[in-house]
Design a protein around this nucleic acid. Structure first.
Length: 203
DNA sequence: TGCCAGGCCCTCTTTAGGGCCTT
């Protein structure tokens, strides 16, 4: 497992529940190493049937665009290679993890990394934020954003910037120079009340 | 026609309900 690198990913999908037959339609991801984006992955994928008007409107991804895209199986093979051996991050990771697991199971593939969730971490660190939607947090942290939310690569890039901002804040609040993945997991499971104790313990 | 997720987290809690977040 690479200690200082990880993959930040985002799926666009036909709906909310892979258990009810929803499929991925786009995957976007960035690989971060030592605080810098060193690689990107972005592909549309054809889910085997038309998507709803709601999803076309929500994502800006149209049935026409998906008609030209490679099928999910093909794209997911490439993505499985991309994330090989890396820890993973997503905003509301339980959502993206369900789709990643579902799509990889269809091609009898998998991954070895662990997931961390930028949403859970932001709820601990930024308790004064108006809410913890990705777009709100980007504004809250004063991060410059130019592009379309609800497209996979853009959301992955924004999540990456938020992630790096959170690592900076953890470094300052804990007085440490490196933030191990294990501390991220510990902070994500902390309560709002004892977050400062968990940070102080690492001084 | 009717169905419509799941995990986290708070609280008027744990024999539960509902808001938040993701598409």
């Amino acid at each position: 497992m690479h200690a200082d690198s990880l993959i930040i990913l985002d799926f666009e999908t036909t709906g909310l529940s892979p258990d009810k037959g929803d499929r991925a339609i786009e995957i976007g991801a960035v690989k971060i190493e030592n605080g810098v984006v060193i690689e990107r992955f972005q592909e549309l994928m054809y889910p085997g049937r038309p998507i709803s008007y709601f999803i076309e409107d929500y994502t800006g991804i149209t049935n026409q665009m998906l008609g030209k895209a490679a099928p999910c199986d093909e794209v997911m093979h490439r993505f499985a290679d991309f994330i090989q051996g890396q820890n993973l991050v997503a905003h509301n990771a339980s959502f993206d993890k369900r789709f990643l697991d579902s799509e990889l199971k269809r091609i009898s593939s998998g991954y070895t990394g662990q997931f961390a969730c930028s949403l859970l971490l932001s709820r601990r660190l930024y308790q004064a934020a108006p809410n913890h939607q990705l777009g709100t947090l980007i504004n809250y942290k004063g991060i410059v954003s130019k592009g379309s939310f609800h497209r996979a690569l853009f959301d992955a890039e924004m999540t990456a910037k938020l992630w790096l901002a959170m690592l900076d804040d953890i470094q300052q609040r804990a007085g440490i120079e490196q933030v191990p993945f294990s501390l991220i997991q510990k902070l994500s499971k902390a309560t709002k009340a004892n977050i400062n104790k968990v940070l102080a313990h690492h001084r």
